[in-house]
Design a binder for these strands. Structure first.
Lengths: 102, 102
DNA sequence: CGGTCTATTCGACACACATCGAAGAGAACG
DNA sequence: CGTTCTCTTCGATGTGTGTCGAATAGACCG
């Protein structure tokens, strides 16, 4: 594992609300989060977004550095898992309120 | 009334969650919102922020255009009122969750 | 009326960000 | 081993943003 650059995930207690809000202020990233909630963990390439691969990669990095999801390598693909429980502990009600908002 | 540029406020139903999140993703603007909640309606100049007047003006415009507050003129000053009830109807729990978050 | 006070607009600046295409690195598969 | 597939990194580009100082325009006060 660790095919590409080794992914690092922030400690949940060091996650800043600024970063979470900025990450979720983008509609593409909210779509990613929604799809992960609705259909479970998925590799980056399975989101059906009409967007360049490099742009998609940028969005996943943003979500990862904001503490919103974790990534781990699985053969040729990179899997994504939401950190919903941790986020709920750190920022109660926030993710739910944002996703319910549109 | 209407001393300066006439202020316009978006209809609450046309307020976009993107704009609300981007507005609240700034710590200075969250301070403004918190102070309005804690101490009630205030003119722009009474927030005790160490920031240029022009920058402050920019933040109030951002909050107003995001549908977060209303402004009305009162003699030499411009008053600010939060649109909390409207926001609660449009985006239930959002403002509370954001302000509780840090 | 002239001065003061409040807030806005404007231009400038540095920085961040969403997007793309091209190039690259590793895993899988023939 | 060479090809293919997935994803990342890099550089470029246009757009947006937080910040400031200077200039401006009303409203009030003496």
């Amino acid at each position: 594992m660790g095919r590409w650059a080794p992914v690092s995930h922030p400690e949940i207690n060091s996650v800043e609300v600024d970063d979470v809000l900025k990450a979720l202020a983008d509609p593409t990233r909210r779509r990613i989060v929604r799809l992960l909630i609705a259909e479970g963990d998925r590799p980056c390439g399975t989101f059906g977004l009409s967007i360049a691969a490099s742009t998609l990669s940028h969005h996943f990095r943003t979500l990862r550095k904001a503490g919103i999801l974790r990534q781990y390598d699985d053969g040729r693909q990179r899997m994504n898992t939401l950190r919903l429980d941790e986020l709920e502990t750190r920022f109660p009600g926030l993710v739910r309120a944002v996703l319910d908002a549109d």
